[in-house]
Every structure is written in C-alpha cells, then in structure tokens.
Write a protein that binds this DNA or RNA. Structure first.
Lengths: 345, 345
DNA sequence: CTGAAAGCGCTTACAG
DNA sequence: CTGAAAGCGCTTACAG
C-alpha cells in the first residue's frame, strides 16, 4: 500500500504538506502543490480511509439499519415479499449516499446485543450517522438512538430528538384517499387487511380510513379489520380465512400492493371476480402493481423523495443542525382496474 | 468513548493485558482475567473497531458490490423489478455475514473511478474481502478484482483466480429442464425472451434451451430469441413487439419470473389465454411466482445456498485458502399452471 | 504471566 | 508557506 510518506519523499516535502495539499487545507505554494499532486498521481496514492477515520474520529460512513436482521431466523421461511417496497427506497438511499461520497454500512449484530450495545457498536465504528428503515414501533433501538448524540434518520418509524428525525409518507391521507374513492363508488362494507398495527404506517392507514368513513357519515366494522403480517402469503391466508367467515363486504383495502397480490389470488380461488364482485386496493404503487390482472388501484408513495431526503436530512444533522422537524411526503391515489362500482345488494 | 486505557486503569493492569484478555491471546492468570472482564463490563467498554482495523491492517468487513451503482442515473427511470431475485439472495448474504460477525459495506463510488481505483479504494478501507453480485460480463471490475490479491466471490459472473471464485446456478440445466418440459407437452415453436446475453446467466440459459432442442431432434428459430433487458416493463414491451410481428409460436420462455409477469400482461392484452393459447415459463421462482394468474411454471434457484455459500467461500479465502473452484448450484423445475399442451395447429 | 515501547497511516495544533 | 512532533486507540513483538 502506498502511504503519504512515500508521496512526501517523492515530492520532496513532509507528510504534513501532502496531507494539506490533498485536503485543500492551509496555504500552499502553487509549485509545491503541483509537485505533490504529481507524485500522488505517479504512485497511484489514495489516503487510507481507516487512518483518516481514526484521527478524525469520524468516517464518511452511514449505517443502514433494517428489519431484516432483527427477525432472527424466521425470515428464511417466507418469501419476504414485504420488503419489495423498501428495495426501491434503498436504491435512492444508495444513489444519494454515493453522490455525497458516503459509504453505507450494515454492521453485523450479535443476537444478544442490547439497544445500548447497538449504539455503542456504531460508535466504535466511527460512523457519521444512521438511517433506520421501517422498524417496528416496539424496536428498542429507537429510543436508544434518539437518546444518543449520533445523527439518525428513521424511515417509517417515529423517533425525534436533538440528533434524530424521521421521514414518512402521509399514510393517513393516502388511506383516506383510497377509502373515499371506494365510498364514492358506492362501497359501504369495506374490509381492511393490514400487515400489522404495530408499525406506525399500519396504524396510520387504518386511522385514515376510519376518518374517511366518519366524514362520510358511515362507520367501519371493527371485525373487518384484520392483521396478517405484510407478506403476500400471509395476506393470502388472511383473505382465505376472512372469506370463509363472511362475505358481506364489497371491497378490500390491502395494507400494501404485495399483500393485495395474495388477496387477489384468494378471491380468484373463491370464484370471485375483481372488481365486479369485490373491489381491491393496494398501497405503495410498486412497479408490479400495474402488472396484476386487473391492474391494481393503489396509493403511490414517493420512493425517490423518501430515499434521497432521508440522506439529505442526515447530512444536515451530521453538519451540526439540531432538532430537524420530521418530513411527511404526500401520497397520490392511482386508479387502475381493480376498483369499480359496488355490486347492487 | 471508553478506551482500553480506562479499563486498564480500573483493573490495575496495562493496556496490553486488557487487549490480551479481550482477544483471548496469550496466557493470563485467572484472577487478572476476571478483574479485566469486570472492569470492561462496568465501564461498558467495547474495543474501537477502527483502531483494530488500523493496527491489524484488516477489518471484519466485506464489501458488497452490485449492479445498482454502475448504471448511473438510468435506474431512476424504471421499476427495476429485475433485482427482486437478488433481494432474496442478499437476505442470506446478510444473515451469513452477520453470523460470522462481519460487517457489510457498500462503498461510495465516484463516477470517474477506474477499475484499479475501485480495487484501491477497497484497500484503503482495509476490507477483508468482497462479494460481487450479478455484474455484466463486460464489467471492468471483474478482471481488476481477479488480478488483485483481495479475496473475492462473484455471484452470477465468472471470475476465477488465486483469490477469486464464483458461485451460480446451473442455468444451462435449468433452461434445458424447462425447455424439455415444453417439448414434452408438444411445443415445437418456442420463443425465448431473455434480458440480455451479456450476462453469463442470460447466455447459459439460451445455450441450455438450444441443447434441449438439439437433443430432441428439433431446432430453435433464432428470430424467436429476443433480448429486452431484465425489467418487467422491458419484457412487456418486447412481448408486445414480438406478438405484432408473428404469432406462430406456442410457448414463451422468459428469462426471469419478473419478465414473465410483463409478458403475461402483453399476452392478456392481445386476448391470448395462458396456457390454452400460449404456454409461459419463468426462471428463479421468486415468492411471487405462485401468485400470478395462472401460477407460473418456472425454474427454482436455490437463493439460500447462493447467498450463504458465497459468504462461506469468501471466508475460506480470507483464511488463506487459494484457488477455490467455482460452485454450481442445482436448479429444479417447478411446474404450475402456466404451461399446458401445445394447441393443435 | 505481565508491561513498556513501537507502530498502524493519517491529521493537526504548534512553532518557525 | 512549511515541517517536527504528538496523538487517534488499538495490538504485538520484545524483554523480563
């Protein structure tokens, strides 16, 4: 490995000068500057990132924390289709981090690690900040990170403090939009299959739907609200069960597009036609939503804004800004073919 | 931040001893060992990973290189459904790396970076090794990494050397299986919509199909082989175009499940019924394959083996093993409802 | 069994 | 404008 020592020797200057030239700090005579740059280029020198991290007590690294790991071994069982939406968000996180010249790190996390241990382990890695994706509200890392002075941005989880903020879609409004759409089509008995109510977005969506009902002067049958988990398979099973129990609803609002795909299959298996017999809606507007048969009416989340702004918020905190307010992104109703007029009773 | 200095002071020993106790190196009297452990626990001490990386000249970090970044800004346009398969693989990479106590790193990569610069940038990060996912055969990082003495495992790309090997599915055999399945159902004119032939797996699959044809005494019409890109949308468009040009085929072999979903839509829009009019097959067996209507006949890739063994191969190289031969994973034909007897001409 | 000292490759006061 | 020296937090010969 080429070191600054070698560059210094070739250029006939001190390591101090090499460092200054490469970092653009301090005044350097143009002639020396050129000599150093030339020497560095000749040797193919690149500063050792680890050494920089050591001396600066901070690296250009952002931790990416996800749902994956926390679930232990259970994830090897299911298709984990629930993560498809976040794959898109992740893409923009990566792009934005790359443009800001930050590495992304997924730290290994021993099973027995406490929330405090988690924060500590990030400290020992000298990371600049962390992005946490879609944690359950019960995740103990949230309060630990909010307490710590490590800049943190939560996506789809609430955590706010001096060095912590969050970004999410306007889930309540999205659910309201889609529910109003169904109400306007004449649907009154609508089933809600959500992944869970322990994620922020799960709860918000139900509340938004409820609000639409209330505003319209109707009420929502609590027995038509079901929590199944966010996977396609789980939604499929929950829909089968619901259909076995009762059939007095004319529409189903799924917690996500991927869940809707499982529900669609359950409806088909029961000989029910979408949207003639039952209308169906999704949430997210993943790329596949238009490829279902029929195309899925859904609520579009702005994945690009979510990913990019998460990084931008984090960078502002890294640069010292405190108490940044949370960001809520607007959603948009996308009407396709899976919703239609309620069948006449 | 708590340092080993503070632990040493509290335990009344030297930093050397603290280091030895925590790393389990050298002989230590039981009494001292206990004192150190206790002091470390009291202070909540955790060794600074960066300092360790600095002095050991190697960190417990594995680089994860993907297709994403190399594509510049183009990816913001499309749904990038093509990556869904690798999301599953990634999950197992993460799990296996976590179990081996390695961090995963996605380094930021400036646009203008040369392949040598890429390898150099990994060096300056003191990473232990790298996993590269599904690169195009033309990716210049492949030869650069094969040359370098940095342990590297390629997934779905060929790169082999002293410190480089690869793992992939038996794509040729998978394509052969699915083609034979169609031939046995009486199909003779089969269209092949592949993402591209510049990835190893794209080419292998076509060759496998060709082999099935030849073994059965038939031949494959080259004009029925189309390259569209791996996204659902691209496959949809290619299928539309193909259907406009000719309709003399009775089956379509898609390059992936996600491509098949786009093709399915194109067929439906033309009023063609699957499998009555046209049989359709996918590749990968992603979780969603069973949720299409009809369920998709496909070739299952062992995503868990792919992800886990990639890490295991890498760890062997990190531990010094050289010239590890590549691994080919068996595939399995999964017959669902999207394939049926060829219609009588 | 234990510790003082050197060193990993940088950056940054401090001095000139 | 430039450099010698200290220091970031560890580990590891070396010596005892």
């Amino acid at each position: 490995m080429i070191t600054s020592e070698q560059v210094a020797r070739l250029a006939g200057v001190s390591r101090t000068t090499v460092s200054r030239v490469l970092n653009g700090t301090g005044r350097i005579s143009e002639e020396v500057r050129q000599r150093v740059l030339e020497a560095a280029a000749t040797l193919g020198y690149e500063p050792n990132v680890v050494a920089q991290s050591m001396v600066r007590q901070r690296s250009r690294t952002i931790v990416l924390g996800m749902f994956h790991v926390e679930e232990g071994l259970s994830f090897s069982r299911l298709g984990e289709t629930k993560h498809y939406f976040y794959l898109d968000v992740l893409k923009y996180i990566e792009a934005e981090a790359a443009e800001a010249d930050y590495d992304l790190l997924q730290p290994s996390r021993p099973q027995d690690m406490t929330p405090e241990g988690y924060v500590r382990s990030l400290r020992t890695r000298n990371v600049a900040g962390a992005i946490l994706l879609a944690l359950s509200s019960a995740d103990a890392r949230i309060p630990a990170l909010v307490q710590a002075d490590l800049p943190t941005v939560f996506i789809d989880a609430v955590g706010q403090g001096r060095f912590a903020t969050y970004i999410k879609s306007d889930n309540g409004n999205g659910a309201r939009q889609v529910t109003e759409h169904l109400l306007s089509l004449g649907h009154r008995r609508i089933a809600f299959l959500t992944g869970s109510l322990s994620n922020m977005f799960g709860m918000e969506r139900i509340l938004g739907a409820q609000q639409a009902f209330t505003s319209a002067g109707y009420s929502l049958d609590p027995d038509l609200i079901r929590q199944s988990g966010w996977n396609t398979e789980q939604a499929y099973e929950a829909a089968c069960q619901l259909l076995n129990e009762r059939r007095d609803f004319t529409a189903i609002v799924a917690g996500s597009d991927l869940m809707a795909m499982g529900i669609l299959r359950a409806l088909r298996e029961q000989g029910l036609c979408v949207p003639k017999d039952v209308s169906l809606t999704g949430f997210d507007d993943v790329g596949l939503a238009r490829y279902t048969e029929p195309g899925l009416t859904t609520v579009r989340q702005d994945k690009e804004a979510m990913g990019r702004q998460a990084i931008q918020l984090l960078l502002r905190m890294i640069e010292g800004e405190e108490y940044i307010p949370p960001v809520t992104l607007p959603t948009r109703l996308v009407v396709r073919q899976s919703t239609g007029p309620a069948p006449i009773a």
